[in-house]
Simulated assay, not measured.
Amino acid sequence: MLTRALIVVLAILNLGVALWWMLRGEPAPAPPAPTTGVAQLQLLPATAAPPPTAAVAPTQALDDRTPAAAPAPAAERPAPPPPVAAAPTPTPVESAPAAAVPAAPAPAPVAAAPAPPAAPAQCLSLGPFADRAAAQAAQAKAGTLLRGARLREVADAGATRYRVILPPAASREDAQATVKRIVAAGLSDYYIIGQGEEANAIALGQYRNREGADRRLAALSAAGFNARLIASGGDGSAQWWLDATLAEQAEPAAARQRSGAAQHRSLDCARVR
């Protein structure tokens, strides 16, 4: 009896469960997961209807007014879109200065070809001539082949010796002081005359030709010594010479031939200036 009652109860329970299962409907789908950064629409409870507008007094003019649309309930108004992040205003970047374009190198100036060095001046003596007039005529004949010409008289032209000497000093001590100056100037070949009319004079060389004596005189004059030339021997006759500087590209032989001189000698140009 008890068993039968339990079976009836279980059958009733199963039938109830089956009916509930058939009548419950489809389960509501689970709400989707909210999207990050997007506002969700939410329904708000309906608000009370606005109070009725008070009747317009009969004494007031009736205005033809179109009733304004009632504002939508907050539940029906769409939610404002989420604020869109404003794009960052680009910071004005100071434009970098354009890279300096290297200037094209200026063409190197073409160096002018160096002028050839001028040839050193060449000086000479033309002669000998018997008198001054003959020397002047020879200068006129030479013309443009000579520059800065001057006449020079040579006494004792027939001399066989030429001595270069400094005049006598006041005392032996003065002569010795002069010798020290000669040595300091780099000159040699000297001695002090000890007796006679030329006592305390300084002999500076004896030469057999006039050219050697003239070179010695020029060296002493450049060092600041006032020497003199003494000729000895011969008949005491004089000769004239024409000292000059050769023009550019002129030849000594051509100058001698045009002037009619018997010979030409090389000459230190310092004696012509």
Rank of each mutant, 00 (worst) to 15 (best):
residue 182 I to G: 07
residue 169 A to C: 08
residue 182 I to L: 15
residue 148 G to W: 04
residue 126 L to V: 00
residue 162 Y to H: 15
residue 134 A to V: 02
residue 176 Q to R: 14
residue 110 V to T: 01
residue 183 V to C: 05
residue 110 V to E: 00
residue 104 A to S: 02
residue 150 R to T: 10
residue 176 Q to N: 12
residue 155 A to R: 15
residue 173 E to S: 09
residue 118 A to D: 04
residue 142 A to D: 05
residue 174 D to L: 04
residue 59 T to Y: 13
residue 96 A to T: 08
residue 158 G to C: 08
residue 152 R to W: 00
residue 105 P to K: 01
residue 82 P to K: 10
residue 160 T to H: 05
residue 123 C to H: 03
residue 125 S to Q: 12
residue 149 A to D: 07
residue 135 A to E: 11
residue 161 R to C: 04
residue 60 Q to N: 10
residue 135 A to M: 13
residue 94 E to V: 06
residue 71 P to E: 09
residue 111 A to N: 01
residue 165 I to A: 07
residue 97 P to V: 13
residue 114 P to K: 04
residue 147 R to T: 14
residue 133 A to L: 09
residue 109 P to E: 02
residue 134 A to Q: 10
residue 141 K to P: 02
residue 150 R to W: 08
residue 88 P to R: 05
residue 157 A to L: 01
residue 75 A to S: 15
residue 120 P to L: 03
residue 133 A to Q: 13
residue 64 D to T: 11
residue 158 G to V: 07
residue 137 A to D: 11
residue 74 A to M: 13
residue 166 L to M: 06
residue 81 P to Q: 10
residue 184 A to Q: 10
residue 83 P to N: 09
residue 186 G to S: 06
residue 91 T to L: 13
residue 165 I to C: 03
residue 66 T to K: 06
residue 60 Q to P: 08
residue 103 A to D: 13
residue 183 V to E: 12
residue 166 L to W: 02
residue 156 D to Y: 14
residue 83 P to D: 10
residue 147 R to E: 12
residue 129 F to Q: 04
residue 134 A to I: 04
residue 121 A to P: 09
residue 102 P to Y: 04
residue 92 P to M: 10
residue 101 V to S: 05
residue 176 Q to L: 15
residue 173 E to P: 03
residue 90 P to R: 02
residue 166 L to N: 00
residue 64 D to P: 06
residue 169 A to Y: 07
residue 147 R to W: 07
residue 63 D to F: 14
residue 161 R to I: 06
residue 75 A to M: 11
residue 157 A to D: 02
residue 78 P to K: 09
residue 111 A to G: 02
residue 79 A to R: 13
residue 98 A to E: 15
residue 129 F to M: 07
residue 74 A to G: 15
residue 72 A to N: 01
residue 67 P to A: 11
residue 148 G to P: 07
residue 145 L to K: 03
residue 87 A to M: 08
residue 88 P to G: 05
residue 122 Q to L: 14
residue 89 T to Y: 05
residue 91 T to N: 08
residue 146 L to V: 02
residue 124 L to E: 00
residue 164 V to P: 14
residue 184 A to I: 07
residue 94 E to L: 08
residue 81 P to E: 08
residue 87 A to W: 05
residue 57 A to H: 11
residue 113 A to H: 08
residue 154 V to Q: 14
residue 104 A to L: 07
residue 160 T to V: 12
residue 151 L to W: 01
residue 92 P to T: 13
residue 174 D to A: 06
residue 85 A to D: 09
residue 181 R to W: 03
residue 110 V to R: 00
residue 179 V to N: 04
